[in-house]
């Protein structure tokens, strides 16, 4: 038997969905706790101290948003959201409330396992002393010396470009909403000026991606925000 690497809490009211999510998560050597409602989910989150919570946003006894906000007041456990495809606003609200990532229904087991692995890996890393050097593709970023090189050649970034890069790099794999990025980098008055963010992400892609039209690291979550992927 493989050793258990993590505790995962699944909060989902549909029995059949819970069933295969559980099977997929157990395949990643995780121990699974289940809850069917918001109330039960909060109790379980307190008792079983999970390393990851998988949360369906459409629960019958209340919305998942309030659960996330409640949870975030005392825990930083990663939260993966399961949500309907067309509900961009719902996803944004959940991400802004503190969720880490989302999957649109229907999703296949492969996708789910990949997300679970990525999130658990990130959680494991947060404990370590983070290295100041991040490398992806042929790019290397030294966060301590604010230096970016590509194929060993220095890349010039403007101050805002560098701020955006370090914001994205700080939480690899996590979806950052447009709103939160605009707020953190440009300030609260720019929250509705999404074109700034898009243009600057475009600059980063031009400077750091092989094919800016088909990026591999600075990914767009259409209608929601951006995700940096190593």
């Amino acid at each position: 038997m493989n050793t258990i690497v993590a505790n995962v809490l699944i909060i989902e009211d549909e029995k059949q969905i819970r069933r295969f999510v559980r099977a997929a998560v157990e395949e990643e050597n995780c121990q699974v706790t289940e809850a069917q409602t918001v109330a039960q989910g909060l109790i379980e989150a307190g008792q079983s101290k999970p390393d990851l919570i998988i949360l369906d946003l459409g629960l019958p006894d209340g919305d998942g948003l309030s659960l996330i906000r409640d949870l975030r007041s005392w825990s930083d456990v990663p939260v993966l959201i399961l949500s309907a495809r067309t509900q961009e606003n719902e996803k944004i609200a959940a991400l802004d409330a503190g969720a880490d990532d989302y999957l649109s229904k229907p999703f296949n087991v492969g996708e789910l396992r990949a997300r679970v692995r990525a999130m658990l890996r990130r959680r494991a890393r947060t404990g370590e002393l983070a290295s100041p050097i991040v490398e992806f593709g042929d790019v290397s970023v030294d966060l301590s010396r604010r230096r970016v090189t590509r194929q060993a050649q220095p890349v010039h970034l403007t101050p805002l470009e560098y701020q955006l890069l370090s914001a994205l790099l700080s939480q690899p794999g996590k979806v950052l909403t447009q709103r939160s990025l605009l707020h953190d980098i440009w300030g609260p008055t720019y929250i509705d000026s999404s074109h700034y963010l898009r243009v600057y992400v475009g600059h980063l892609r031009q400077k750091l991606e092989d094919d800016p039209a088909q990026p591999k690291h600075f990914l767009t979550e259409t209608g929601v925000g951006y995700r940096f992927q190593l």
């Binding site: 549909e14 059949q16 969905i17 997929a24 229907p106 296949n108």
Partner: peptide, 21 residues
């Protein structure tokens, strides 16, 4: 309608997938 249709479809896709596990 979209919720009611999507829920069983999500279960079907996932359960068919999980047969491999």
């Amino acid at each position: 309608l979209s919720h009611d249709l999507r829920t069983p479809l999500t279960a079907m896709v996932g359960l068919a997938d999980s047969l491999a596990l």
